[in-house]
């Protein structure tokens, strides 16, 4: 089986400071990988390098495209990379307002990606928007409301709908449950898990919340100071951490 994503030796520097260094891994179709680490560990830098938002100083991010098979997205043309960003890739931001158009209705937010890939039939676009609102558990009657009138959890679910409407194969998530109430988090996690399975999505989830990765991620990478210090099966890394930093991280979580 061809990996969906092959990451080889990614490095990003900010001047003399290291953002992340020497990160390599393969992600297979249907796999969900978590990246954990404290603030400043380079996990968000890495995610942005992978998603094409930042240009890494070294390394390859090879994506198995539908048309041409594995292609290095770091060196591919910008239009092609942006096209990927609208079709096969999705990016869920921590703050919904970074990923939504706050002045555009919920339906317009969901429809944007469809229109971006050439959909020009209002009725069909609206139909899909309504369908997706249902899938992320937002009442259809809210389709013409702006996201600014939504709660934080609803905004985050809308962001997910907006991203998944074009049926992407790889979803990047940056702290998708950050800043949400625990009960709202649970609902979102449940929703994400269902969608991941239903759609056969692969996902890379950056978070500092170990409970989130335990529930969502098959595999885990632990980062510290820009480097991967430990990687493996999620439950193995959490239950039998090998590296000093991971042990510290795991033992620092309050037990409920």
């Amino acid at each position: 089986m061809t990996p969906l994503l092959q990451v080889n030796g990614i490095e990003k520097r900010y001047g003399a400071r290291i953002g992340c260094r020497d990160v390599s891994f393969d992600l297979y179709p249907g796999e969900v990988m978590g990246i954990v680490g404290e603030s400043g560990s380079g996990k968000s830098t890495l995610l942005n390098c992978l998603a094409g938002h930042l240009k890494p100083d070294a390394g390859q991010v090879i994506f198995d495209t539908r048309a041409d098979g594995p292609v290095d997205t770091v060196t591919m043309s910008e239009p092609a990379r942006r096209m990927l960003g609208r079709t096969d890739w999705a990016f869920v931001h921590q703050h919904a307002r970074d990923g939504l158009r706050m002045s555009v209705s919920a339906g317009g937010n969901i429809g944007e990606r469809l229109m971006a890939v050439g959909s020009r039939h209002y009725g069909q676009i609206r139909g899909q928007a309504l369908d997706w609102l249902g899938r992320v558990e937002i009442a259809e009657s809210r389709v013409d409301d702006r996201p600014s009138a939504f709660s934080g959890g609803m905004q985050q679910r809308l962001q997910i709908a907006r991203n998944l409407v074009t049926g992407p194969r790889l979803v990047f998530m940056d702290e998708p449950t950050g800043g949400l109430d625990v009960s709202v988090q649970a609902r979102l996690l449940d929703l994400l898990r269902g969608l991941v399975r239903e759609m056969g999505l692969s996902a890379i989830i950056v978070t500092h919340d170990l409970a989130v990765v335990r529930l969502l991620a098959d595999r885990l990478m632990v980062m510290k100071d820009g480097e991967v210090v430990e990687a493996g099966l999620t439950d193995q890394v959490l239950d039998d951490p090998q590296h000093a930093y991971t042990q510290l991280l795991v033992s620092s979580v309050l037990q409920v």
Partner: peptide
């Protein structure tokens, strides 16, 4: 430059929906 004009239709979509 990349002819990414989907957004223009979002505006028209908003018109129709409202």
């Amino acid at each position: 430059s990349l002819q990414e004009y989907g957004l223009m239709h979002v505006k028209l979509y908003e018109d129709i929906s409202q």
